[in-house]
Amino acid sequence: MMRRAWRLAGPLVLRAGFGVLAVLVAASLAFVLAWNAPGGPVVALAGDSVAPGQVEEIAARHGIDRPWHQAWLAWMGRLLRGDLGMSWREQQPVAALIRERLPLTLALSVSAAALAALVGIVCGTVVAARAARWPVALFAALHAVPGYVVAQGLVLVFALGLSVLPVQGIADARDPAAGGVALLLERTRHLVLPVMALALHQLCFVALLVRAGVAGQLALPYVTAAMARGRSRRGARWRHALPNALLPVANLTAMRVGALLGGALVIEVAFALPGLGRLAVTAALARDHPVVIGAVVVACAIAWMANLAADLAAGLADPRLRAR
């Protein structure tokens, strides 16, 4: 019983441990980069005119009067205990700052990924049976349009042209919602355009992959056999070809979570949304290194959790992987 459980869970445990290692490596890279950047909290906080001894005092307070390897060890020790440290600028724990910003980024990315997956799979499957080449060209062309240009186009049409949706931000400054349903509605209204802008690129990617996959499956004998048993063409496409085409799509999509977070960063800037990406950018410009490293740790952890979830889902969905 124990051995059987290990055979099923073992690889996943190994991968999870490996993910922790990857996050630590990324965090260390971010630490080294930040440590060697010109400027720093002393310059940023003290400014041009400082009292005697103030520079030393600031450096000692933030622990940057030590050599970098000592600071790195102390910082890694705290990270392993789950402590991301204090922000130099905001005088708040980094974890609190991130907790404040993360929900928006997650809402944006998860909605965009879900929208892209649903619409992309449907579009790809519908198009797979057609011989025409134009849908492929259309998806490939839209795939080449960067997210922020899509964002600008959407703003032009829906916000400036039709005035049905807000241009930017996450709350209505003139009439902030009090709470409950009104708040939810307001947030949703503000997120419609960012989600669409972020989703389009991913949607085209999924649609192209699904189309290629389903078209490939449709050529295989088991589909012909299913139709010989009386399945309709559409039934064969959706019930037989699509499930077999979906597995590689799920894997490739999970591998693009990092890219999706990067896209979310640009969309956050384009729509002036207070998310994790903008937190990282403003912190890096202000030389607030603990916040920068904290954001990197969280982003990498999310990317790895998505990978792990994809592995788990693939294991559950694919009998061949389960048997191994």
Partner: peptide, 22 residues
């Protein structure tokens, strides 16, 4: 495994941070 670690990093985030820092 190294390739897997590197490709899981959000490349654009890394580029943005390097640009902001350096």
């Amino acid at each position: 495994r190294l390739a897997e670690i590197v490709s899981s990093l959000p490349a654009l985030l890394a580029a943005v941070l390097v640009a902001a820092l350096f």
